[in-house]
Design a protein around this nucleic acid. Sequence first.
DNA 1: GAATAATATGTAGGCACCTACATATATGCA
DNA 2: TGCATATATGTAGGTGCCTACATATTATTC
Lengths: 160, 160
Amino acid sequence: MKDHVRKYGPAAIGGRLRRLSESIDEDARRIYAEFGVSFEQRWVGVLYELVQDGPLSVGELAARLGITHVSVSQTRQSLERAGIITAEVDSSDARRRQLKLTVSGAKLVRQLKPLWQALDRAAVELNNEAQDVISALDRLDDALARRSQFDRIRDQLKQT
Amino acid sequence: MKDHVRKYGPAAIGGRLRRLSESIDEDARRIYAEFGVSFEQRWVGVLYELVQDGPLSVGELAARLGITHVSVSQTRQSLERAGIITAEVDSSDARRRQLKLTVSGAKLVRQLKPLWQALDRAAVELNNEAQDVISALDRLDDALARRSQFDRIRDQLKQT
DNA sequence: GAATAATATGTAGGCACCTACATATATGCA
DNA sequence: TGCATATATGTAGGTGCCTACATATTATTC
């Protein structure tokens, strides 16, 4: 089945990246469910950063995680509903929200520590077995940072 | 910004795969928009297969593309609404739908041919510049096929 | 001080998939 | 032939992001 997709070569790179991420996300989801925890994958990065250096603003988290502020904003809303964090207006800048762990949030994080360690180790094992996919992703990131796919495609169109 | 994400190493592989795919998809979307075509990325694989070997059933397309039948089913609905394909009940098996290009669908495909060629070439260029990401994805696919991330994580938990 | 520009975060809608569950049809076996 | 099983496709809801647009606040300039 998967072998059929390989015939497309680089043309299918976007789809293949997505499907791999779906697969890895789904497996993580199953593990949380088996651990008896209601948890959203997108919470991990936010929680990790808040544990390390909280409180942090929406924008700071977005920068640290390499995602848009909108994603962080949406994630913080679900985290608040779950009682894991609070998001209070910054006292020195009313535009800004300071996100920090609640007591029960910190408790959840402690509870999840062994699971996160297992997730980390499994990821390292997978990366090693696949002969350093992460470095390949770094290279892809760098190539896209140098020149967007939009510009590349447009230039190829001009040469047609 | 992106450099911050790299500190997570393999632990962030799922998220990184997803974000790269979003980035590549978004750039393709912009190109279709600039080409003056209303087009959904998910249509490409279906159309490509129908051009090659149509008519095909939902299940056959799913197998060829390496995605679920549900995704194909949903994609075929949007393709039908756009008048690009028809999906008629197979005369020899009433469970099955035969998907094929309409006349205007075939015309759209012809119109898009140069764009698809440009997309292909840009993808090859990107893959070369990133020193063969596709092979890395092949290896990742193979590693996950050998052993799921779910099983890997669970085993790591047992060793804690 | 007022106007303009920059900054922080939010809402709305969309994307391309996924799993769980459901229904209809075809096949195989006793 | 009837029933159990397998197969094909569909509906419903969800995932974790994204862009476009919006609003409020702060900073800068004149």
